[in-house]
């Protein structure tokens, strides 16, 4: 196998976008609790799409990871709004017309997802699908190779740790809101998401406000300050 090092996730996403081809590609970590942080994205819009799914807790990448199979949405305008009301509306606004999400798993262990975004509608033909699956397989190998190169004593490779750490305040804010509002962690995260969505901000921005005590959530109702 070729030497695996920093920058490989970026190279893989760029190569995937050119080969399939699609407009943009995002690579994200996934956990049983949802989006685990974006490792890399080829462009601003792909990065935005990853943040959006992390913020809303809905979208093709979450379904692909949960179901353990690819989600192929060749016409987001036709089928997306019923399935993911929040994500589809924002993605269509941003000019995304089709989304193809591929889960990265080893056995029953969820590692991540490779998301392909395209600004035109239409299915992937068989060679394109084969290409995309090959890139997903390669992405899984890259994630594992990064992990294999992690320093003993450090549970995560720095590049994966960075993606995970980028979401640190979301976890902290979830804990804080659960005490503030007297609800469970799942509900606390839902409230954070609802607030982010309704104020058109990202989940991480809202979480940082909570952590820095600029925003509080109250018991009973969904509102804050």
């Amino acid at each position: 196998m070729a030497e695996v090092g920093d920058g490989l996730p970026e190279q893989l996403c760029r190569a995937c976008a050119v080969a399939v081809p699609v407009s943009g590609v995002g690579l994200a970590l996934m956990t049983s609790t949802g989006h685990g942080g974006t490792i890399t994205a080829t462009d601003r819009r792909a990065s935005m799409m990853e943040d959006l799914q992390a913020t809303l807790g809905e979208g093709p990448c979450l379904d692909a990871s949960n179901d353990g199979q690819p989600v192929l949405q060749s016409d987001l305008a036709a089928t997306g709004p019923a399935r993911w009301p929040g994500f589809a509306a924002a993605a269509l606004d941003a000019g995304v017309a089709a989304v193809f999400a591929f889960p990265l798993q080893v056995g029953a262990i969820r590692l991540g997802v490779l998301d392909l975004y395209r600004d035109t509608t239409g299915s992937l033909d068989r060679p394109q699908l084969a290409e995309a699956l090959a890139f997903a397989e390669a992405a899984t190998t890259i994630l594992l190779s990064l992990q294999d190169k992690a320093t003993p004593g450090e549970p995560l490779h720095p590049q994966l740790a960075e993606a995970v750490e980028s979401r640190r305040e979301i976890h902290q804010a979830t804990g804080m809101v659960s005490v503030q509002a007297g609800v469970g962690l799942t509900d606390a995260l839902l409230r954070l998401r609802a607030h982010a969505f309704s104020s058109e901000r990202s989940l991480i921005e809202v979480a940082k406000d909570v952590v820095d005590r600029r925003l509080r959530f109250q018991p009973e109702d969904d509102h804050h300050e």
Partner: peptide, 13 residues
């Protein structure tokens, strides 16, 4: 890797 990520989520919360 999956466990390390779950652990960080848990500790953050």
């Amino acid at each position: 890797s999956a466990q390390a990520i779950e652990t960080r989520t848990l500790i953050g919360r």
